[in-house]
Amino acid sequence: MSALGLYNYEIVIVLMMTGFYVVIRSPNLVKKIVGLNIFQTSVFILYISMGKVADGTAPIVMEGARAYSNPLPHVLILTAIVVGVATTALGLALVVRIREAYGSVDEEAIQKQDRVG
């Protein structure tokens, strides 16, 4: 039972490391932002998993509910999702600008131009 009790957290770490790998390995800037999104969603899953109570229901007042799940992580993650989209938008705008300045979104091509210049 103890191994099963940590199953969610282990999967979250696998997802997190997958996103991290994309961020540091992929040469393409758009793909890096995709990796960042995967990483971000895994953190959301971590928080929501912590908020779950066994036998609980959604935190909306209801007749006959024995326990409610913890509303606080839900609130924090609602904020984080919206902020995440704001950072994604800013990152993508930077990618578009980099593409105009260097003519490429490939990290190695950009670094080569920087060395020559």
Binding site: V30, I33, K52, G56, S69, P73, I81, V85, L92, V96
Partner: peptide, 25 residues
């Protein structure tokens, strides 16, 4: 996991707006 508010924000904002922004890029 009982987080209904988070679920529909993720579906609308995470799956919707993020994808549209990335496709536009």
């Amino acid at each position: 996991l009982d987080a209904v508010d988070v679920a529909f924000t993720e579906a609308a904002v995470g799956a919707g707006i993020s994808t549209v922004l990335m496709l536009a890029t």
